[in-house]
Structure formats: C-alpha cells, structure tokens
C-alpha cells in the first residue's frame, strides 16, 4: 500500500484521521512532513520555505502561550513574536475554545469549532499552531484540511499531530527559535518572502488600535 500523504486540503467534509491511514507520530528528534517521518532539522528548513513562499503566512498561538500561567509561557510568547517579525507573518490568537456565537471575528481570531472561517476570511495559505491543547488542535487541523487548501503545521508540545501537514514535537523556546533561524538563513541565501503586505491587528479592551 502506498503511503498516505497528509497534503493540504480540501479533503472533503470528513477527511480520514491520518492515523487511520497509517501515518505515525515522530520519535524525539524527528518530525513528520506530509506523513513522512524526517529528521527535525529537515522540518525546520521545509517549514521555513513553506512560510516564505506563502502569500498569507499565519501563526496561531493558543492559550498555552497567550496566558501567563507560568514563566515558560512568557518565554515562548516572546519567541513566537520574534518568529512572526522575522518572516513576517500575521499573528491570530486562539484565545480559548468556547464555541462562540453568533460568530467569531474571523479577521482577528480563530476558534477550534470553526477554524475554516478564519482561514477563508483571511485567505490563509500556510499556518502553524503553537500552544493549542492537543484535542483542540486535532479538531481544528482536521476541519481546516477538510474544507480549505491551507497547508497546516503544528509546533506541538507533546508527541506531534498526524493530521497536520507538517508536525514538530516537544515544542520549546529553542525549537521555535530554530525555526526562526531557518527562516533567517533562507532569507540570507536570497529566498524572499512572498507575503502580501498587511497590518498586524492590535487590540485593547476598548477595541482595535491597529
């Protein structure tokens, strides 16, 4: 049987769970690229290239890095900001997992219950999840691959995600920084970011300030 590839969607309404198609999780020091197990170093370069080729590269930080629940969260948040600046990429938060009704503000946030709305609205073609709890990331990754053509990546703090097109594991400040280093290296070699120009949305309690 040929190996199932976790390609960007749309994989139709109910994409198969990649695990059920034989995709396995990487061991420490490895990642998976479209379902193929590869050394982590290869993943950094692949992910960096994908990001630089994208028109709307986007980082989705989740609650584990948005909320100041421990010292490491703050450090990760800093590393994520640096990665976004280096690319450049939009930052769109997944602040919590509540089903929000009647509708989320798809331009400014993403929600695991209907993440496709954010992808469609902003025409996001490459994204990475970081700091999202596993089960919610699984849900969002599957919905995105089901209904959009976005290339999904996961910087997972545990064992990785089969349903992402590319997944790292054991996320840490160092690993986020390594991805940023890979971006800077490619840029130095002459690879230019294809990102459309954008203004990062900024907000306070009284509304948008940028």
């Amino acid at each position: 049987m040929s190996q199932y590839q976790v390609k960007a969607g749309p994989e139709a309404f109910l994409p198969p769970a990649a695990a059920s198609m034989g995709v396995i999780l990487p061991d420490p020091g490895e990642c998976h690229i479209e379902g193929r197990i590869a050394p982590e170093e290869e993943g950094y370069e692949y992910a960096a290239r994908k990001f630089l080729e994208a028109k709307v590269p986007t980082i989705f930080p989740g609650p584990l890095v948005l909320w100041n629940w421990n010292e490491n969260a703050t450090k990760k948040a800093k590393a994520i900001r640096a990665l976004a600046d280096a690319l450049p990429a939009r930052l769109i938060p997944m602040a919590d997992y509540r089903p929000k009704y009647p509708k989320i503000d798809a331009e400014a946030e993403i929600n695991p219950n209907h993440p496709n709305l954010t992808i469609w609205h902003n025409k996001i073609d490459v994204c990475i999840f970081v700091g999202v709890h596993c089960h919610q990331a699984n849900l969002a990754l599957k919905i995105i691959r089901g209904g959009t053509d976005c290339f999904t990546m996961a910087m997972c703090a545990q064992a990785g995600h089969e349903d992402a097109c590319l997944s790292f594991r054991d996320a840490s400040v160092e690993k986020i920084t390594k991805l940023m280093d890979a971006v800077n290296k490619l840029k130095k070699e002459g690879v230019k970011s294809q990102a459309e120009s954008f203004v990062q949305i900024k907000m306070t309690s009284s509304g948008r300030v940028a």
Partner: peptide, 20 residues
C-alpha cells in the same frame, strides 16, 4: 490573579473581551 493575566509579548493581539 496571575493565573488569568496575558503574556505581555502577545497581549496586543488579543481581542477586547479578553483584556476586559
């Protein structure tokens, strides 16, 4: 109260309701 404060580095991308 620290449990529900935001990471300073990413606070400005959070929608108004979370600041509130």
């Amino acid at each position: 109260k620290d449990k529900i404060t935001l990471c300073e580095e990413l606070a400005d991308i959070m929608p108004p309701e979370y600041h509130e």
